[in-house]
Design a protein around this nucleic acid. Structure first.
Lengths: 218, 218
DNA sequence: ACAAGTATGTTGCAATTGCAACAAAGGAGT
DNA sequence: ACTCCTTTGTTGCAATTGCAACATACTTGT
C-alpha cells in the first residue's frame, strides 16, 4: 500500500490531502484487491457502489453490443478512476464490464464512506468530496463538448468544430492534436478514409494546412 | 423569497434540507436577481462561478454557431439549474449565453460558499454537497448514454439502441417515448423524414410496431 | 362539422458517407 | 540499405442520409 502513495498523491482526486492519505484511507475503509490477468472486476448489470482506482496494471472497459460481442470502450492505466459516475448516481446499474488486462491492483473506496462524515469528522473527508465534485464537473464539461461534436451531421462540420475547440484550447492558430488519423476518426465517430478525404478537401479549399498531427487554420 | 420555498423543497439539489432552507440560504449568501424579458443573465465567454436556479419565468441557453447565429440549445423552466458543471469545474469558460425568456427570478448560489464550510459548520452544507455530487453523477451517466447513442453511425443503429434503452428503462417490450418524431429526430441528431423512413422500414421488416409515441418491440 | 394547424409518412434526388482495396510515404529495427 | 510495419492518402462504388416538397392523418378550437 505504502508503495503507491506517490502515485496517489498526484491524482486530482487526492489533491490537497497528500500527507494524510494513510489516515484518510483507514477512515474510508479503503481496500486493495489484486486481480490476475483477464479476471473480471465487475460485470455489466451489477450495481456499482464503489470507486475503483488502478494502482498497478490496467483494466479494460467492455460493453456488449446488440449482437452480443464485447466492444472495447476504453483501457485505463495506473492512476485512472472507474465507476465514479455510476457509484455516486446511486441508482445506476453498470452498462460496462470491467476486466483486468494484466495482473492488477485496484484500490476501492466505498461511496457510502465518502458521503457519510466519519465520527472523527476529519477534514480530508471534506476535501475529498470537493475534489470529487470538481472531477465530476470537469467530466461533465468534457462530455457536453463531446455531445456537441457528435451532434454535427457531416464530417466537415465535426472537423471544423473539433479544430475550433483545439484552437481555443491551445490559444493558437497552429497546434498539434493528440490523435493520429485513425484515432481522430474514432473520436469523431466517422470512417477514417472519409475523414482523410474531407480533410484534404478542406486543405484544397484553403481553410487549413496540416502535416501529420500538426494543423494550421487559415 | 419565502414564496419559493415550496418549489425549492422539491428540487433534488435540496433533498433532505427541506425545513432548513432559510438557514442554508443565509449561510450561502444566496441572492435572487430579477431579469426582464430578453435580458442576458450571462454571456458566452464569461467565467461562471455560481449556480443559477430558475425560480420564476424561464431562461434560454444559446450558443453561437460557426456562422455567428445563435442556436437554441435548451429552454429551462422553473426549478431547473444551470451553470453547475461549469461552476464546479472551476477553470471553465461558458460556451453558452443565458437569456431570460420571460420576466424571470433567478436564485444564485456562489460555488465558493458551497465548497467552503462555513464557520458554524451547519450540517445542511454537507447534505448540499452530496446532493450536488449525486446530481452531477446522474448527469454524467445520462451524458455517457447520449454519447453512446450519437456514436452510432446509421439511423437504424441509433434507433435500435434508443429503443433498447427505453425498453430497459420501462422494463417492458411496450412503452411510450417522451418525444414526438421531430423531437426524437433532434435528439438522435438525424433528419426527421429519414427517421420516419427508417422507422417504417424496421416495422415492415417485423422488428417493431408503433402508434404515435407508443412502441412495441417484437 | 369545419377550418386551421400540427404531426407523421412518402418520395425523388443529390450529396455525403462507409466500405474495401490499394498506393504512397514514413519509421523502426536489423 | 532493406524489410516490415504503421500511417496516411486515394478512389470506385453502393448505401445511407439530408433536403425539399407534398400527401395524409390527427387535433383543436369554434
Amino acid at each position: 500500500m505504502q508503495q503507491y502513495f506517490t502515485v496517489l498523491q498526484n491524482m486530482p482526486i487526492f489533491t490537497g490531502i497528500t500527507s494524510d492519505l494513510p489516515k484518510l484511507f483507514s477512515c474510508l475503509g479503503a481496500k486493495v484487491h489484486t486481480y490476475s490477468r483477464n479476471t473480471v472486476v465487475f460485470y455489466g448489470g451489477d450495481r456499482v457502489n464503489r470507486i475503483g482506482i488502478v494502482l498497478k496494471g490496467s483494466v479494460k472497459l467492455l460493453k456488449e453490443d446488440a449482437e452480443g460481442h464485447a466492444v472495447l470502450l476504453a483501457a485505463l492505466g495506473v492512476g485512472h478512476l472507474f465507476g465514479e459516475a455510476l457509484a455516486f448516481a446511486d441508482t445506476a446499474i453498470s452498462p460496462v464490464t470491467v476486466v483486468a488486462e494484466d495482473e492488477s491492483d485496484i484500490l476501492f473506496l466505498e461511496v457510502q464512506h465518502i458521503l457519510t462524515v466519519c465520527e472523527t469528522s476529519c477534514k480530508f473527508h471534506q476535501v475529498l468530496l470537493t475534489n470529487m465534485l470538481r472531477l465530476m464537473a470537469q467530466k461533465n464539461v468534457y462530455l457536453n463538448q463531446r455531445v456537441e461534436l457528435l451532434s454535427k451531421r457531416t464530417i466537415r462540420e465535426k472537423l471544423t468544430l473539433y479544430l475550433q475547440q483545439q484552437q481555443t484550447l491551445h490559444n493558437a492558430r497552429q497546434f498539434t492534436v493528440p490523435f493520429d488519423r485513425a484515432d481522430l476518426a474514432d473520436f469523431l465517430c466517422v470512417d477514417r478514409s472519409a475523414l482523410s478525404r474531407e480533410l484534404c478537401h478542406m486543405r484544397d479549399e484553403g481553410y487549413l494546412t496540416f502535416t501529420k498531427n500538426q494543423f494550421t487554420l487559415l
